[in-house]
Nucleic acid binder design. Structure first.
Lengths: 233, 233
DNA sequence: AGGTACCGGATTGCTCAACAATCCTGCAAT
DNA sequence: ATTGCAGGATTGTTGAGCAATCCGGTACCT
């Protein structure tokens, strides 16, 4: 043991140096980005050959990326036919909200990430949404809304659940792209987020959780109402 | 529309016929099974060439399977070094319990899968565990325990959360394999499951959820206590 | 002895080319 | 209109190949 100080210092260095992500991951990142931002619409076929040529990676690497995207539910494989950008069904939408209903209120009420600053932080996000609203910035509202729910999820203090919810929110964006119009859809929820924050500011996490449950139940209905039926796509 | 009766009948056929899983999935299944049942211990290196030869699939297929297992956290990639059976750290264990703490009580208290039969069904599982106990069947107890928590999770009525928890329970088994001895570890929790069921039988889902939270908090400590420090493995 | 530099073998990361199986399209025959 | 079928395109999977990286050992230096 030549140098005790050294080995102590080394312990502080992150165990895995920041290696560059693998080719498959970079391909998955590129595709994921295009899927969630709507450049690649639901149902689009992801041809191996085309993507291979477009991104400059071999077909095998593309296939590895597909495995990732499929496990994230952003894409779906139809055996011997190909991989397609996922098209969430009404059932999938229900599942998304069932998941959120299970996780978010629980994180809000019992999450150990709670601190005295939490209400103020959430308030901050609501304010951001409000200024976006005043500027008619639909995308900004949507973004702030997502941030709000991610912040709530983070109270749960679980990497795993964070990751789950990241996936959920990504798929939510897919769903939004399926709606007849996202325009004006998020506004009503500003008020409800505000109410949740108000309850938190009063220190009533339980009531806030209940309010959030109501929110999610309503939102599911709204989304289903505004989602085009399969016949129209 | 030549035949209305026919098209109605076809509607009942499952949309995707049961295709045989791909080679990569079968490889992943085989490896996953060996990992969770302990045949492949934590830290074991999964050499592409070896597995390729052993299972009779090409290296490329093995790599696709790896992507899956890694996304399930049952294996970990160390760039340029290889893929290894995951070795959960204390931090990972904490994360597992944080996840369960977020999901299980919530499912128990608010899950829409609840019915009047639910308490009886859970009671049934507890009884199964008890007979396993009387026969000194450690594995049986562990299995019944898992079943108990899966049943609770299912109350949440979300495929996605079910899938998440399937992964959580799989990783839990990895953790159990890391303990000095699984012998006698699960017994104490029989009593606590029983208490949860008793509360449910009284119709008090809220109290049952609280009891479950206490259970999980204690269990985490117990697991950490019985888990060998990294130095010993 | 203790530390460093270097070398060769093994393994990974990724590509490329090939081929059977399957699916899709269009067209011809009924 | 429906069926049958040929041709072309794409997927599923394999095998070989090669650069980059890592590992283990050995020789070298002090």
């Amino acid at each position: 043991m030549p140098n005790r100080v050294l080995s102590e210092a080394l312990r502080l260095i992150p165990h895995r140096l920041p290696t560059q992500p693998s080719a498959a991951e970079r391909v998955a990142d590129a595709l994921r980005e295009q899927i969630v931002d709507g450049s690649l619409r639901s149902g689009t076929r992801l041809t191996e050959e085309t993507i291979s040529a477009a991104l400059g990676f071999s077909r095998n690497t593309i296939r590895e990326a597909f495995v990732l995207l499929i496990s994230e539910r952003l894409a779906a494989r139809e055996p011997n036919r190909g991989v397609f950008v996922a098209t969430p069904t009404a059932d999938d939408i229900h599942d998304l909200y069932a998941t959120r209903l299970l996780v978010e209120p629980s994180a809000l009420e019992y999450g150990s990430g709670w601190s005295d600053d939490t209400p103020a932080e959430l308030r901050q996000i609501v304010e951001t949404a409000r200024t976006a609203q005043e500027q008619g910035d639909t995308a900004g509202i949507a973004q702030a809304n997502q941030d709000f729910h991610r912040a709530i999820t983070r109270l749960g203090q679980s990497r795993r659940v964070d990751h789950l919810m990241a996936g959920v929110l990504a798929e939510m964006r897919l769903v939004f792209h399926l709606m007849d119009s996202e325009e004006g859809f998020h506004e009503p929820y500003l008020e409800r987020n505000d109410e949740i924050v108000r309850l938190l500011e009063r220190g009533d996490r339980s009531a806030a959780a209940a309010s959030l449950r109501g929110y999610l139940l309503d939102a599911e209905q709204q989304v289903l109402r505004h989602t085009l039926p399969p016949s129209a796509r």
